[in-house]
Design a protein around this nucleic acid. Sequence first.
DNA 1: CCGCATCCTGAGGGATACTG
DNA 2: CAGTATCCCTCAGGATGCGG
Lengths: 132, 132
Amino acid sequence: MAETGIDGTLEDRGPCSAGHSGSGLIKDVLARIGDKWSLLVIGMLDAGPQRFTALHRNVTGISHRMLTHTLRQLQRDGLVSRTSYPEIPPRVEYEVTPLGRTLIEPVLGLVRWADAHHDEIQQSRAAYDAEL
Amino acid sequence: MAETGIDGTLEDRGPCSAGHSGSGLIKDVLARIGDKWSLLVIGMLDAGPQRFTALHRNVTGISHRMLTHTLRQLQRDGLVSRTSYPEIPPRVEYEVTPLGRTLIEPVLGLVRWADAHHDEIQQSRAAYDAEL
DNA sequence: CCGCATCCTGAGGGATACTG
DNA sequence: CAGTATCCCTCAGGATGCGG
């Protein structure tokens, strides 16, 4: 089994307290995709370019503030591009970048895993909660 | 491109406000692996069974409290098993379950992605931060 | 229509000390 | 050595309102 990856690449090899430079690493990527909304937004944008309001409608529970913020982060990381059309009223379209698209694939791996095993997990949780 | 997955499986198809039952879905899986420590712990345990103190030493920045808590969650989800040996002093060993091992693979997909693209991301961030 | 600033609450998570 | 409980603080993130 390839144990080459996890402890060799996930870990920082050093005190992460100071957030030093060095390896850079996965932690901030996890921080990005692990947050509450990024994946949902990317998932929505995967269906095609969308304007702000459309996203706000489609991403179900997201607040105005968080949508803005999430889009900013994704844009900063180069996963999503923002195009503003100087009209009245203003129109802004968001789109997944090529880099962003490459992320979708590995994420789908996780999605499939979750889909395949979430009932096992449910059972395990039920069993665990039962024995007290 | 398989856009079959993301918006069809990530999303709840309904107001997630009430945390209703229905699809179950990936969100709680993401919540598990998206948290600060779970993946690090699993990564460590991937190298073989370990006792509490060993983990505490190896997982770099984790606090006593969070290690306990994380292990409990993983155990509850059936990703990690706990074996307690009734000795003095007590000895407890943690180990990745078969289910837990199946998780490692898709996670490695993400790890590889992060590894392959984190410099692009860094550049993108730098570029973004420059233009103000 | 879109974005930013402000305020406020609650969950996450660290430090510490106490039990078995 | 392993686990639990308590305290406290930080910050993600929701609500709202103004500006462009």
